[in-house]
Computed example of a mutant assay.
Amino acid sequence: MADMRRLPVVEVLAEIASSMSSDANVDQMLARFLEIMMRLSKAKAGVVRVLTSDGGHLRMVGAVGLSPALMEKERYVPLECGICGRATLEHSPQVDNVMTVCSKQVRHLYFAQRCKTVYAIPLRHKGKVLGVYNLFMDGDDTLPDDVSYLFNSISEHLGMALENARLTRENMRISLMNERTMLANQIHDSLAQTLAYAKMRLTVLNEAIAEGDQEDANRYLGDVEEAVDMAYSELRNLITQFRDRIDPRGLVPALQEMVESFRKKANADVDFLNIAQDVVLTPDEEIQVFHIIQEALYNISKHARARHVIVTLDLEGGQYVVNVADDGVGLMTGAAANVGKSFGLTIMRERTAKLNGKLSIESRPAGGTIIRLTFPAKLPEQEAKS
């Protein structure tokens, strides 16, 4: 890297912006810019710290020029400790050339013999301090004005990176909890109901055997065998659904692949027709639509005995319209339907609700079933605001 003292402010900030867009690990990025700040200030050592989740301590995420023993003592410091605490609480850079607090806190000769001046530059974003850079100097020289100005800009940019990383982790936790809830609901509406049905039939089977009623016993045994087969099929479907991942290129390529896969598994003629000229959905909306169509196709393969299936995606009057139509036997009736009629349907409706849409399932006059999903499309100005 070139002499950082000669680089214009814009180039240093451009370096930060580039790192923010490419670095997955914010701690590593903060540690790398610690070296840049040390070069700019001619510091002999430095530490970068971030606020812990409880807000009571500063945790070291990177250090340069400190011994392993001193690094261990500096691993965590109380938020109110000395110059770091002042920088955090007052939201402004601090400088100290009296090492009393640091020496007392870590009980190390470094602050009594080698370090003469400490700088603390807070990492700020929208009125919050998220961390601190410490620069340890062996003299009492003050930072030049241009370097102080640059440090202020760096701290705001890196503070933004810290906040973005926090929001990303928070969103990942929310997504994980949502997926677990969705999985629990799917198990409840499919596998759990099937097993509950099997358990009830086992009870009457035992009663029939105890009473010597062979005819009823054979019928109930057949019901149990059918329920076990259905439970096994549902389990395989759940495993398949949670292994499947939407194509990173977007919904339309993902649906094309899904239809191709379904065509091979179901031994049916399946077509996908994208009538909408432009499909603009958020990643979450794409996932909901993908899984609704996936569940619809699975139900067709399990129940409909269809020879031809067509999936269409259209945009009409500010509404996306998805149709999944088949020429099979139509909506199920009879005992098997009483067990399986709600499989996946509750989950499809929950996903539809996330889209603020509507879901309908109807018999076609010519035979078969049509599943229709409609949900509002975001206008360009709505997309910009979200």
Rank of each mutant, 00 (worst) to 15 (best):
E285P: 02
H303N: 13
L297Q: 05
D314I: 06
Q294A: 15
V311R: 03
E286T: 04
L313H: 09
I293L: 10
P283D: 03
I287L: 13
L281D: 02
H291N: 14
V289Q: 00
A306C: 08
R307A: 11
D314W: 07
G317A: 15
Q288M: 09
L297G: 05
L281W: 04
H303R: 11
V280G: 09
L313I: 13
L297T: 00
T282I: 06
Q288T: 04
Y298A: 12
R305C: 07
Y298G: 11
I292E: 01
N299I: 04
A296E: 11
Y298N: 14
I310Y: 10
H291L: 10
G318R: 08
D314M: 09
E285G: 02
L315I: 00
R305F: 11
I300N: 13
I300V: 11
E295T: 09
H291P: 07
A296K: 08
L315F: 04
E295I: 07
E286G: 08
I287D: 14
F290S: 00
S301Q: 15
H291S: 12
E316M: 12
V309R: 00
I292K: 02
K302I: 00
V311D: 01
N299A: 09
V280Y: 07
K302W: 07
S301D: 13
D314C: 05
L313P: 05
H308E: 10
I287M: 14
L313G: 10
T282P: 02
Y298V: 10
E286H: 03
V289T: 02
G317V: 09
N299P: 06
H303M: 08
D314A: 14
I300R: 10
Q294N: 14
S301H: 15
Q294K: 11
R307Y: 15
I300L: 11
E286Q: 08
T282Q: 09
I292W: 02
V309F: 13
Y298T: 15
A304D: 13
E286N: 04
N299C: 08
I293Q: 01
R307K: 14
G317K: 15
P283G: 05
T282Y: 14
T282G: 05
P283A: 00
A296R: 06
E295Y: 10
Q294P: 08
P283K: 03
V289G: 02
V280T: 11
Q288G: 02
